[in-house]
Design a binder for these strands. Structure first.
Length: 418
RNA sequence: GCCCUGGUAGUAUAGUCCGGCCUAGUAUAGGCGGCUGUCGCCCGCCCGACCCGGGUUCAAAUCCCGGCCAGGGCGCCA
């Protein structure tokens, strides 16, 4: 490449002006290169242009590649022409090089600039890799990718609060989950998956909650909880392995390591968890939900992936199947990572009369599930599935402690912009 | 919904407990000047801030009250 003329486009990351010589660090999506401007070796117009640049200006540089041991990558570009394509208003709201830190709130307000940082670039390359690995894994397993409506007619599912929206002259809601649709679709396609947004109008204010997140959902016909747990753990292994192999540089930037899980993952029953917590002086009555503090304790005992199975039926939604030998216990499970729940799923109820009974037990009205129940009239097979929170998985893979950092433009209780 | 913490230049911080020494310090960014091998370049000069409103006091960034905003936690989270 030495002596070759090249045309580069990118953003000015840093300028070091030594008087007779000026160094401009140019950054694009692939990396950085040093533009060296020696006073004695560059025409006047280009020299003047190089002197008028600011950090984060978008520029095009036509110049000559020069082999140079003293340059950061062993090569540098001596410009023949510099064109300013877009200027950056000074002073910038934050320091993209990360030398002067900025708080999360400041960073999110200037998100497009913030994302130019090494950390931002690394996080979203890893996120892309997770999505790519997930799609190829599930496709290879025979799952069909589907998209279900995010605008829904009624708030029938219970549980988490939905966001109401104005839909012409009616009220509608943003979907909190593709649960009902994906179950219906297995009577046509047997194995489906969806990667799409889910909305929760919860007033949670923590580092692991947002109101709009991406849910990775699967549903599989002729399958049980055990079958889909295998799919989940194999997917976790595949994703960790892919990120480990493809994102070495990104992980280095983040100072994070991804360990490959050993399969099969630990499977603890709800009762075993209660017992383990008892030993740590955390008392939970059988049938009670496990509070956050208890999960934190549990996460110390089990620092990586594990399943919690055999949850009390009353703690699970209506579509989770109670066990045939003990209806107090369900075939629902959660996939945990340390103290954080990253997935939940289970065998589903596939008999219409049982489903109607379960709906009533949970105080819901079967008549508002008319279209969902209709699917059970046309040969509903036994089935199972799960949903993984993409962002929580990405947090685990990047070591990022705040979920909003792994979302481009996060939405939470208080943030609706940018 | 509840609880805790905080709001000082573009950014990040010191000062707040215990009012006066604050004409508000420092770093970085920005502007100007100098410097031909930097890579967190260096050196000099300059610009730039006490969230808002009320109160206490001779005196408020500092204490009190209200508001707004933010961070975190709990609850909630099919």
């Amino acid at each position: 490449m030495d002596g070759k003329e090249v045309l580069l486009m990118g953003w000015v990351r840093d300028i070091r002006d030594l008087g007779g010589i000026r160094f401009i660090v140019l950054q694009d999506r692939l990396g950085r290169i040093q533009i060296t401007v020696p006073e004695s070796d560059v025409d006047e117009k280009t020299l003047a242009k190089s002197g008028s640049l600011h950090r984060q200006d978008c520029i095009a540089v036509r110049g000559t590649v020069r082999k140079m041991e003293k340059a950061p990558r062993g090569v540098e570009i001596v410009p023949k022409e510099i064109r300013i394509l877009g200027i950056a208003k000074q002073p910038l709201p934050l320091d993209v090089t990360g030398k002067t830190p900025a708080e999360i709130d400041v960073r999110l307000d200037a998100r497009v600039l913030d994302l130019r940082s090494d950390k931002g670039q690394a996080i979203f390359k890893i996120r892309h890799t997770v999505l790519e690995a997930t799609r190829s894994f599930l496709s290879r397993k025979g799952f069909l990718e589907v998209n279900t409506p995010k605008i829904i007619a009624s708030a029938t599912e219970g549980g988490a609060a939905l966001f109401p929206i104005v839909y012409f002259e009616r009220e509608a809601f943003l979907a909190q989950s593709p649960q009902l649709y994906k179950e219906e679709l297995i009577i046509d396609f047997e194995k489906v998956f969806e990667i799409g947004p889910a909305y929760r109008a919860e007033k949670s204010h923590t580092r692991r909650h947002i109101t709009e997140f991406i849910s990775i959902d699967i549903e599989e016909a002729f399958a049980t909880a055990d079958d889909v747990m295998k799919v989940a753990e194999e997917l976790m292994y595949h994703v960790c392995k892919t990120v480990h192999e493809k994102c070495g540089e990104e992980l280095r930037v983040l100072g994070h390591k991804v360990d490959l899980p050993r399969l099969p993952l630990k499977r603890l029953t709800y009762s075993e968890v209660i017992e383990e917590l008892q030993k740590k002086d955390v008392k939970i009555e059988w049938g009670e939900d496990i509070p956050t503090a208890a999960f934190r304790t549990l996460g110390k005992i089990h620092p990586y992936f594990y399943f919690i199975t055999d949850w009390p039926t009353r703690l699970k939604p209506f579509y989770i199947k109670p066990r045939d030998d003990d209806p107090e216990i369900s075939e629902g499970f959660d996939l945990m990572w340390s103290w954080i729940e990253i997935a939940s799923g289970g065998t589903r109820v596939h008999k219409k009369e049982v489903l109607i009974k379960r709906l009533k037990e949970q105080g819901l009205h079967p008549e508002s599930f008319k279209y969902h129940l209709q699917a059970f009239d046309y040969g509903m097979p036994p089935h199972a599935g799960w949903a993984i929170g993409l962002e929580r998985l990405v947090m685990m893979l990047t070591g990022i402690k705040n979920i909003r950092e792994v979302v481009l433009f996060p939405r939470d209780r208080f943030r609706l912009t940018p």
